[in-house]
Amino acid sequence: MTLLVTVFAAVAATLIWYNKENDNRMMVGTLCLMYWGASIMWFVDAIAGYIEDGAAFFTPAAEDMLNDLYLGLSVVAFGLVIWLAILLIKDPRGIVRKAITKNMN
């Protein structure tokens, strides 16, 4: 479930990046790569789980699924927070810089 949620987040971020063409000022590409990186890693984890559990891997208990969904959504939120932090620190549109210098004046 965590893999599924992360893949959906990666696809959504990629579609937003594709739609924005050359406008990299929001650094959506970074968010895409982060989510895809995590998705690939969880995919390997899922393969390891399948090798260990066999077909039972695809029929998790309802409680585990709910916990994994909660985890998946938390992971997506954590990724968004990291992306926001990078965006504000790098400040490609100069908005943070402008706000700080405005307050100084």
């Binding site: 992360t6 970074t30 790569l33 982060m34 989510y35 895809w36 990186g37 995590a38 998705s39 690939i40 890693m41 992971v75 954590f78 990724g79 990291i82």
Partner: peptide
């Protein structure tokens, strides 16, 4: 990809 995936 590596940093983002590792962090998550």
């Amino acid at each position: 990809m590596l940093w983002g995936g590792s962090a998550l």
